[in-house]
Design a binder for these strands. Sequence first.
DNA 1: GTCATTCAGGACACTTTCTGTCCGCAATCA
DNA 2: TGATTGCGGACAGAAAGTGTCCTGAATGAC
Lengths: 315, 315
Amino acid sequence: MSTSARMLRLLSLLQTHRYWPGGELSARLEVSDRTLRRDIDRLRELGYAVDAVRGVSGGYQLRAGGSLPPLLLEDEEAVAIAVGLRQAASGSVAGMEETSVQALTKVIALMPPRLRRQMDALRSQTDAPGPWGGGPQVDAGLLTVLAQACRDDEPLHFGYVARGADPTERWVEPHRLVSIGRRWYLVAYDRDRQDWRSFRVDRISEPRATGQRFRPRELPGGDALAFVQAGIRQRPQRYAVRVRLAAPVEQVRRAVGHWGQVAADGDGSLLEMNVDDLQWPVMVLAQVGAPIEVESPPELAEALARVGRIFSSAT
Amino acid sequence: MSTSARMLRLLSLLQTHRYWPGGELSARLEVSDRTLRRDIDRLRELGYAVDAVRGVSGGYQLRAGGSLPPLLLEDEEAVAIAVGLRQAASGSVAGMEETSVQALTKVIALMPPRLRRQMDALRSQTDAPGPWGGGPQVDAGLLTVLAQACRDDEPLHFGYVARGADPTERWVEPHRLVSIGRRWYLVAYDRDRQDWRSFRVDRISEPRATGQRFRPRELPGGDALAFVQAGIRQRPQRYAVRVRLAAPVEQVRRAVGHWGQVAADGDGSLLEMNVDDLQWPVMVLAQVGAPIEVESPPELAEALARVGRIFSSAT
DNA sequence: GTCATTCAGGACACTTTCTGTCCGCAATCA
DNA sequence: TGATTGCGGACAGAAAGTGTCCTGAATGAC
């Protein structure tokens, strides 16, 4: 076995069990104990912190060091990571979406097909929306295809349905993915229209990479996020929810999480949140289970009344 | 730079941008083009699939191969992975909990302190319970401490509050973590009581690893899962929810996700789910927003009626 | 304290690998 | 057709890796 391969193997061993007597390591790597010590030294020179314990039942272990060593993952671990990232990328973790997609793309691109199949098999279970799922679900598979095309400078074909328009076929040079709120946008140079456009990812269908490459252009202004924001003229109608609750702040906050602001209001609480969809606050209020006074919007009061009727007449 | 280090560097380069002209690579690694070709060959011998394109604007790229190459992650990517896995480990992804914890432990153990701090900083945002948060939230940080102690055979001190008992201090040899339903259990040998015990993780506090190690004992029967299941005599009271809804199956299923079974029932749907906590079905039913007929349990009907009154009287 | 165990690391001789330079060949694209 | 880029053999010198010594130091069992 070559030195490089052996070093990787050693790193892998140190990562899995964390604590190894030197004899065991040298046996597994089929080298003398001296060489093992040298290998350990090499790892240390590469910046990885390998601790050693001397004496009876001494041994080596990898400690967290200054930089993250190459992660050597078992198959299931890789799948778990991909699944977890997929969740994070589809917005279940605030603020991590873009980095998650980036990491996910990297993992997916390197995954052997069998692992990818395994991951897809888990998809039906994991992508299920659940009660909280509001708004169009983002397809993590789609995201990774787009992210990969951005990274590799590969031109893309895809179908696109613009707001209130007929389906069109696009042929673009993808530039960047941007996540705003709960939506994803692809900033790309449209080859047919010869101009920069931003596309809502949930309206993109059947992306086809060509395997070719293009020379990256420079986005005017350079800031993809600003470009997308400038493009969003009409925001979807939003509700500014403002509700008084006869329950202690703590209780309300536990139900709301970070999806809204909760303030004290006498003995009760004042809840404020901004949402696209009223089902969200309805669910929150159902969980709090305390008397409610809706200040705004009126639509929320109507929604509550409707659900109230249904619930009251439920046998 | 040593050969091993250069190989890792090359692998890293191939992972980040995916497509590189040979000249660029050899320049970055400060070696001749010939050596670069040899390095590429070495990678191929190690089992990594490196594609090459000849001719003008040719180059190299890493393809998904037979095995997952060592993942070389940027700092933010590592953090994203840790955050995503944390979510998955706390049960947001069904069936992946144990593997997620395993992968998470590996990543955390290798993370430099600065990344760990960064991750913890994100914790306040990501761990927020939100409207769906039913039941005690599992602390992923706690889980990784326990998982690591299991892996490294390190004895643990921790505080424990058994069901309906006073707080006690435990001194155990941790064996395995087991996830059942939405709960986590630690199977360990209790040194003071000199016997095997299973501990509910959400009742464990302040685990302290000692840095020592113990010689692993063999769990009688060998099956940690069976051991825990045998220990759970009295299950918490559960509700078998059975509800008829005047809404098409599709709509109901979208709201329910995989948290319950939905079947067609004439024009409407029949929803069945098993829960510990009735707030869950209440929220689901609030989202569906269709007329309801509760078959069981009676407690659900009461809960709905209570929420219905509150909603109806919300100004 | 004594002793066995285990990691640490210098020295040396030997082997192997690695590297750069040279070369002709093959594939690709303008 | 010619320019560009990857492929890979050959070769000699440089560099490294390796095993076998050795002594030292820390640790824990007795």
